[in-house]
Amino acid sequence: MPQNNTLKGNHANSELTGEEWPQSKASKTISQDLASLQWRPGPLGRAISSGSLLGTKAFHDDHAELDTKPGTRVYHRRWLMLFLFSSVSASNAFMWLQYDVISNIFMNFYNIGSLAIDWLSMIYLLTYIPLILPVLWLLDNRGIRDVVLVGSAFNCIGAWIKIGSASPNMFPVTFFGQCVCSVATVFVLGFPSYLASVWFGEDEVSTACSIGVLGNQNISGNSRG
């Protein structure tokens, strides 16, 4: 009897058509794969299969790679750069209000009126308006290094021109030197925030920006006082 059942089963399998045999083999393979999955309780009491664990791990790994952002690389010389920038800004602020502080002496020295002395400081404000857009374009295309170097050069040249105009009949030369220094203001006055964002990390931007602004504003406030 067992032999007949075995033969009958073998005979039944042999009667499968060419289309039914691959389907039967595929069903058997799927059944074996489902049976091989080992289910075990998850952290919240729910059943998690090994396949689900692999998928979850891959999902978290992908998101970890997406969420990982490279940090800003900072250098120790960033504080030196900030000090140099603040020094240039402070020097330019000296040039701005040096005539207003002792205006009566310069009025007697050059034999001019108070309006001429006022124009020596107001020229800084007038120069800033037409030149700020070209300087911003230069900043985007050349970088902060070239912008600060050009501003420092204008500041130095203007200072030497004013030194050479220390004569009672050379007030026009003094005014020209003051105009050159006013051009330097456009290159250094508005860039502490840009310097802080380029050279410093996220937790140091506000501090660096405050120090950069302090170089100009502190000198200006003391000069007016």
Rank of each mutant, 00 (worst) to 15 (best):
S27R: 06
N92F: 06
D62W: 13
G9C: 13
Q98D: 08
I30A: 00
S14G: 12
L16V: 15
W21Q: 14
S114W: 01
T56H: 12
S49Y: 03
K57N: 10
I102A: 03
S89A: 10
F83S: 15
D62N: 13
F59K: 09
P130I: 13
N104L: 07
K69W: 10
P130E: 13
R77Y: 14
L37M: 13
F85P: 02
Y110Q: 05
L34Q: 03
S91P: 04
S103W: 13
D118F: 09
I48P: 00
F106N: 07
Q98H: 04
P22W: 05
Q23S: 03
M81N: 02
L97T: 02
R46I: 11
P70M: 06
N13H: 14
R46L: 12
T127Q: 08
P130S: 12
S36R: 01
E19R: 10
T17R: 14
D33R: 01
P130N: 13
R73M: 09
S86L: 07
F59Q: 11
D61F: 07
N104H: 11
Y110D: 06
G113L: 09
S114Y: 03
A47G: 08
I105C: 02
F59L: 13
N104V: 11
R77G: 12
H63K: 14
V74D: 04
E15V: 09
A35L: 01
D33V: 06
V101R: 07
T72W: 15
D61I: 06
A64T: 13
I117P: 08
F109V: 10
L34G: 00
G55Y: 11
V135S: 01
F59P: 03
P134V: 07
S121L: 12
K25C: 06
I112L: 11
F59S: 14
K28N: 03
L133Q: 11
Y124V: 08
I48D: 00
F83C: 14
F85R: 01
M122I: 14
